[in-house]
Design a protein around this nucleic acid. Structure first.
Lengths: 146, 146
DNA sequence: AAAACTGTAACTTTTTTTATTACTAAATAA
DNA sequence: TTATTTAGTAATAAAAAAAGTTACAGTTTT
């Protein structure tokens, strides 16, 4: 089934990393099976459509592949030992950081003018630290805890 | 003005850390003045009531003090050089981490049963890394960037 | 006494997240 | 070959969370 690629299609799930890791852990546990979105959703207690959306993202990053039709589903397309949590983190577009105020600050105030830029610099550093940590954990490592 | 303490009063602002840092940076820039919530809100383009709520939290942690009445406002109650970003981070109740799925996972699935516990362990480690970083930055350090 | 503040409650509005419904297309199995 | 099961996606609805508003009591200062 083919659709025109829609960049904005993907809705933002707040726990995307958690959801992706959950999906991928299940796929790791059943490396030879195509798991259905229904089955995965059952483990997560989440709507199957949301699971499929999350899988769409993982597919776009080529770490899983799906088969449509009866007995279809999704499986890993590379070994769990060759996938790091850092990769998964980056795939979910999530950023470590402590947020920004929603409103644009006052550009006439010296603090308002620069606050977001200075916070950004701080958060970039955080990301680096966190990525160093996640880079050393493979999906296989994570999955063997279960 | 005194009210009965209400633990649940404090509403959750998503960018609490950012807002607190912004407030504290302003207070650092004017260490001898009581700044009004109106003035602070003007720099942040935020509702003054929200600023006062955030300040209530900072007061509870004894790093700022307020004066009611005419010409009242808020000022730092300790030197900016003696406040670290780690302290501020901890005051905002924010946690580093990459979130959890909203729904309770299926306890009959080996993965569902343990996913949150395993993510938690991962996030605890992240927090430690981030706290190490923030501990080395004082409010004064941060403020001199402006 | 008037004015300018803080503190807080009680809502309301807006935004973001999550869930649902519905339908097309594909693959399999009977 | 036809029914069935599954993915893919759009569109919308519902729920939850965040942000904003209004209102007013209590404090200080002038």
């Amino acid at each position: 089934m083919h659709y025109i690629c829609n960049i904005f299609y993907y809705s933002m799930l707040s726990g995307k990393f958690a959801i992706s890791v959950h999906i991928l852990t299940l796929l790791t546990k059943f490396p030879n099976d195509y798991l259905s979105s229904e089955f995965i959703a059952g483990s997560m207690n989440l709507n199957p459509v949301l699971v499929r959306k999350e899988i769409a993202n993982l597919k776009a990053h080529h770490i899983v592949e799906s088969k449509e039709g009866k007995n279809g589903g999704t499986k890993l397309s590379k070994a769990a030992s060759n996938i790091t949590l850092k990769e998964i983190f980056e795939m979910t577009f999530e950023n470590i950081g402590l947020g920004y105020a929603k409103n644009q600050p006052n550009p006439d105030c010296p603090v308002g003018k620069k606050i977001n830029q200075n916070l950004e610099a701080l958060y970039v550093e955080m990301n680096q630290k966190v990525c160093q940590q996640l880079e050393n954990i493979s999906l296989e490592d994570f999955s063997t805890q279960f």
